[in-house]
Amino acid sequence: MSSLPCLPASPHRFPLARLGAIALSGPDHLSYLQGQVTCDVAALPVGSQTLGGHCDPKGKLWASFRLLRQPERLLLLLEQDLLARQLPELKKYAVFSKLTIAPLADLPLWGLAGSGSDAWVARHWGLEDTGLLADGMACRLGTDRWLLAGIPTEADLPGAPEADWWGLEILAGLPHLSAVHQGEYIPQMINLQALGGISFHKGCYTGQETVARAKYRGSNNRALFILQGQGSQAVAPGDVLELALESGDWKRAGLVLDVWQQGADRLLSAVLPQDLAVETRLRLKGDEQSRLAIQPLPYSLAE
């Protein structure tokens, strides 16, 4: 069986070079973003966070993100390579509102994870859950796992490889779109409805009709899966996955969303048909010796 990324035995700091940040500020920043994204921005208390998505008018995602609400601004944290297409789309209607939308290239972003990290945060900053700090925010993602935004990196902590952070994100079933996925998926295809990233009561936003139809008419037939196994070739987001047919042939099943790889070991998140049986055999196209098995999600997809 393949190995998996695991929490360090003590608190470690992780660089997060893959992450970028967008700040929205000004009198209309709350109302403007409320009409653009899937999550309920207006209901988010100051000092809290949520996942969310930004869709095109057809309900296909430009970006998935983590939203942080600070006293005078909103922060969107998302993959750096999404910004080139997503940022202009986010700004498209801003001319009619009083706000500023700008990327923050120098915002410190890092991860904290490892046994005892919750106690470390409580001891250093007095937080038991997500909250504001003098320089930014500390976001609790799970037991002993935190994302720090706007806070100088804690140099006294030992460092850990960034790749392992993203492996832990995969194990948590958290979606991370890359540029290759833009325009491919509606929010339910990456499980945002199961992660608190979609509000079905907030009213209109871009792409809302498609997202609502997927819920109330059951029109979505895909979901995010976690896959574990081995392969001989390097894997990248957007690579094609195939499933085994009873005939012995292989059929295209979906795309890799994110990957952690070490030696021959592979851990993937992928968007695949929602009705796949747990025992379905999968492989990476072009790597005929690769074998991947479906792993349980750490949450329920039931709405």
Results as ranks from 00 to 15, higher is better:
Arg283His: 11
Asp275Pro: 08
Ser247Lys: 02
Val278Ser: 14
Leu282Phe: 02
Gly218Leu: 10
Ile226Phe: 01
Ala234Trp: 01
Gly248Trp: 00
Gly231Tyr: 03
Leu243Tyr: 06
Gln230Gly: 04
Gln228Ser: 15
Lys285Thr: 02
Leu245Phe: 13
Glu246Trp: 01
Leu276Asn: 05
Gly238Asn: 04
Glu288Trp: 11
Gln274Arg: 14
Ser269Gln: 05
Val278Gln: 15
Leu243Gln: 15
Glu288His: 06
Glu246Met: 07
Gly238Tyr: 09
Val235Leu: 10
Arg213Thr: 08
Gly238Val: 12
Gly263Ser: 11
Leu227His: 06
Asp258Ile: 05
Val240Lys: 06
Asn220His: 07
Asp239Val: 04
Arg281Ser: 11
Ser219Lys: 14
Gly218Glu: 09
Asp258Pro: 09
Ile226Gly: 00
Ile226Arg: 05
Gly218Met: 13
Ala214Ser: 09
Ala214Tyr: 01
Asp265Thr: 06
Asp239Arg: 02
Gln274Trp: 14
Val278Arg: 13
Gln262Ile: 04
Ile226Gln: 03
Ala236Val: 11
Leu272Gln: 11
Gln261Ala: 14
Tyr216Gln: 05
Phe225Pro: 00
Gln261Tyr: 04
Glu246Ile: 12
Ala253Arg: 06
Leu268Gly: 02
Leu257Phe: 05
Leu276Ile: 09
Leu224Glu: 05
Ala234Glu: 10
Glu279Trp: 06
Gly229Thr: 03
Leu257Ile: 12
Arg266Gly: 07
Gln230Tyr: 03
Asp258Trp: 00
Gly218Val: 10
Asp275Met: 12
Gly254Cys: 08
Gly286Trp: 05
Gln274Ala: 14
Trp250Leu: 13
Leu227Glu: 01
Glu288Ile: 14
Pro237Ala: 07
Leu257Pro: 00
Gly248Gln: 05
Asp258Thr: 09
Leu267Trp: 07
Ile226Ser: 00
Arg213Trp: 11
Gln228Tyr: 03
Arg281Lys: 12
Glu279Lys: 13
Arg217Thr: 10
Leu268Tyr: 02
Leu282His: 01
Ala223Phe: 04
Asp287His: 05
Leu272His: 08
Leu268Phe: 03
Lys215Leu: 14
Lys251Leu: 15
Ala277Asp: 15
Leu272Trp: 07
Leu243Phe: 12
Lys251Trp: 12
Ala264Arg: 14
Arg213Glu: 07
Arg217Cys: 04
Leu255Cys: 14
Leu224Thr: 00
Thr280Met: 09
Arg252Ser: 15
Asp249Thr: 12
Val256Phe: 00
Leu224Gly: 00
Ser247Arg: 03
Val235His: 02
Gln261Phe: 04
Ala270Ile: 05
Val240Ile: 13
Gln274Asp: 10
Gly254Val: 08
Arg283Trp: 08
Val235Asp: 00
Gln228Asn: 15
Val259Pro: 09
Asp287Ala: 07
Tyr216Arg: 01
Ala253Ile: 09
Leu272Ser: 11
Asp239His: 11
Ala253Asp: 01
Ser247Ile: 05
Gln289Trp: 03
Leu255Asp: 10
Leu284Cys: 05
Ala236Trp: 04
Ser247Cys: 10
Thr280Ser: 14
Ala264Leu: 09
Val235Tyr: 01
Leu257Ser: 10
Gly263Phe: 09
Ala236Cys: 12
Asp258Ser: 13
Asp249Pro: 08
Asn221Ser: 13
Ser269Gly: 08
Val235Ala: 01
Gln262Val: 10
Leu257Gly: 10
Asp258Lys: 01
Glu288Lys: 11
Glu288Pro: 01
Asp287Cys: 04
Val256His: 03
Ile226Cys: 06
Thr280Trp: 03
Gly248Lys: 07
Ala214Glu: 00
